[in-house]
């Protein structure tokens, strides 16, 4: 198959056509036609419901993302530089990496109550070990030759950080950020479903109880679009910027 015969637009239309065809054949409320879903999407947007819940979820996403990234980076850099501590805490990391997301979420709600704090904490704890492991890898791989060069030419602390250390960590941070977004936005819906009374997860739960499949699909489309936009507009350009000097 030659790919230039199937540009993205064609493939998107094919997807919609198959969906529409199936919906028409099945003729069941379990699979509403695309037109119905987009109508719901439009109405929910007009009524302000969708922007409200989407906004809440994105705000939670932003807060927990920033927290997980900054805490995780600090811990990762620290562990990457201190071999003994790293060996000591390595088991802890393995444990935290392997605790299922659902367990952390339930425990957070049990320990901290059904609060905003518990929700954010649950997401952060889920994401944190990933960031630590990725950034630690970067901090371990810091080029000794370049550090010596900086020392020999008497770079000041800030100059060394900015021009020698930061560019080496940057690809790892971007990597952690990209996988981070992908992980967090999936977890955050479960967190909201289990213990919040607003946000995308809460809405989806409501639609589920009312067997409103069109609503579920409409919200999904909105959410996926926003996440893809963040990826394309923010993270990908940052990634490209980080690689500009490579051959």
């Amino acid at each position: 198959m030659r790919s230039d015969f199937f540009p993205p637009i064609v493939s998107a239309f094919l997807f919609l056509a198959i969906w529409g065809g199936l919906a028409f054949l099945l003729d069941s409320p379990a699979l509403p036609a695309p037109s119905v879903v987009f109508q719901v999407l439009y109405q929910e947007t007009l009524s302000g419901q969708l922007p409200y819940h989407l906004g809440i979820t994105l705000a939670r996403l932003l807060v927990s993302f920033v927290l997980a990234m900054s805490l995780g980076s600090l811990m990762g850099i620290f562990l990457g530089q201190h071999e003994k501590l790293d060996r000591f805490f390595d088991n802890w990391l393995v444990i935290f990496l392997n605790i299922p997301a659902l367990v952390t979420i339930i425990l957070c709600y049990v320990w901290f109550g059904l609060s905003e704090l518990a929700a954010i904490a649950a997401v952060v704890v889920n994401k944190l070990p990933n960031v630590v492991v990725t950034v630690r890898e970067g901090a371990r791989a810091l080029d000794r030759d370049l550090m010596e060069m900086a020392q020999a030419f008497q770079f000041k602390r800030w100059k060394t950080l900015r021009h020698v250390v930061w560019p080496q960590l940057y690809p790892y941070l971007i990597g952690a950020a990209r996988t981070g977004i992908a992980l967090i936005w999936k977890i955050i819906l479960v967190v909201e479903l289990l213990g919040r009374n607003n946000g995308m997860g809460y809405q989806l739960h409501l639609f589920f109880q009312m067997f409103n499949v069109a609503g579920i699909l409409a919200y999904t489309i909105a959410f996926v679009t926003v996440i893809q936009l963040i990826e394309a507009v923010v993270l990908k350009p940052l990634d490209r910027h980080a690689k500009r000097w490579r051959r």
Partner: peptide
Amino acid sequence: RIGYMFQNPRLLPWRTVRENIDLALP
């Protein structure tokens, strides 16, 4: 004030030639 030329060039790959030199200047 010591200038050091190492066995390998040890240039910062993410900085241009000129930036590499200017960064080393006290």
